[in-house]
């Protein structure tokens, strides 16, 4: 790739810029990731990097925003712009970025504690704002970085350092919860141990215009391997939701025999399928691009400083004496 491309300031105006560069996966690769060996985050990073290259996203106009936790280190390992924020607050930061710069492509990486606990209010409202961004919730069912505390998605009975006699309450269901939020426009679930599915889901999420919420089930080799071990070993415990409007991967047919055709337009069906069951369902639960997008509604033409001074002088007349 060439570093000599001249980009006019008008990229701020969201005008199309001719770009002759071609980006390979390595063009997006940052420093070597420092997650534990076997951590599901590695697989997500690979899928993300592959997606960036497949979609030829310009590194300088792509921003990864994250909160705090293992998964929130992801921006450091991608050679784009990144904002590694504070615990639970990736979504407000990302909303600010997108509201002010519609020309930027925004990804959000957060963990289950980040998204469904300390930042739960933002999760609810970001879903409703439906600002165009791809939000990845890397759900290992535990607080990893702070060393094994119960998270809202920890299965009931699972012992941790804070609830050593087992988690007291049934786990929160992020898919059902998100589907319950007014103006949700894209809700999907995938798992890092099915890389093709992970990649296809990320791609569908990225291509969706609006707020795409993807829950990525992932193993924590330190603390929660056992939670997903069964599902990893026994594909029969997984049911794929397939549809041409969602994710459909014939190459998985042999391994994943349990498949259900689900039209992502059908919200009622999506809500039924999100309820707890004896299977883990992967796929696009819901998708609706007709939902209003806050970032589109709030987009306004820019004015020059001189125009603003003229307008402000007019406004000042109201107060003149």
């Amino acid at each position: 790739m060439s570093a000599t491309l001249s980009l006019p300031v008008c990229s701020l105006l969201d005008c199309a810029v001719e770009d002759e560069r071609h980006f390979e996966m390595h063009d997006y690769e940052g420093p070597v990731a420092r997650w534990c060996p076997g951590c599901g985050d590695h697989g997500v990073l690979t899928a993300v990097t592959k997606l960036l290259s497949a979609e030829q996203l310009r590194p300088e106009t792509t921003v990864f925003v994250s909160g705090i936790g293992c998964s929130s280190r992801l921006p450091h390992y991608v050679k784009t712009y990144g904002f590694h924020g504070i615990h639970g607050r990736a979504l407000p930061l990302a909303t600010g970025v997108k509201l002010s710069r519609p020309d930027l492509t925004v990804f959000v990486a957060m963990g289950d504690g980040d998204c469904t606990s300390i930042g739960a209010a933002h999760w609810l409202h970001a879903t409703r704002y439906n600002v165009d961004m791809t939000a990845l919730m890397l759900d290992n069912n535990i607080y990893g970085l702070t060393k094994m505390q119960t998270s809202p998605t920890t299965p009931q009975g699972f012992a941790s350092n804070t609830q050593p006699r087992g988690s007291y309450l049934p786990a929160l269901n992020p898919i059902a919860a998100t589907l319950g939020i007014t103006n949700a426009s894209f809700v999907a679930q995938t798992a890092e141990w099915v890389p093709q599915h992970l990649y296809a889901t990320l791609q569908a999420a990225y291509r969706h215009r609006g707020f795409s919420f993807v829950r990525i089930l992932q193993r924590c080799p330190q603390y929660t391997t056992s939670i997903f071990q069964q599902a990893v070993r026994k594909p029969d415990l997984v049911e794929l939701l397939v549809h041409e409007q969602g994710v459909q991967l014939p190459e998985l047919d042999k391994l994943y025999k349990r498949q259900r055709r689900h039209d992502p337009k059908d919200l009622d069906a999506a809500r039924r399928l999100a309820e707890p069951d004896d299977v883990i369902r992967l796929g696009v639960f819901f998708k609706d691009e007709t939902r209003p997008r806050y970032d589109e509604m709030r987009r306004l033409p820019r004015h020059t400083a001189e125009e603003k001074v003229r307008l402000l002088n007019e406004e000042m007349e109201r107060y003149a004496i």
Binding site: V65, F83, G85, R89, L91, P92, L93, A94, T95, G96, V97, K98, L99, S100, H122
Partner: peptide, 8 residues
């Protein structure tokens, strides 16, 4: 957060 994101 939104103000900081916008300013960033």
């Amino acid at each position: 957060g939104v103000a900081i994101g916008a300013s960033y």
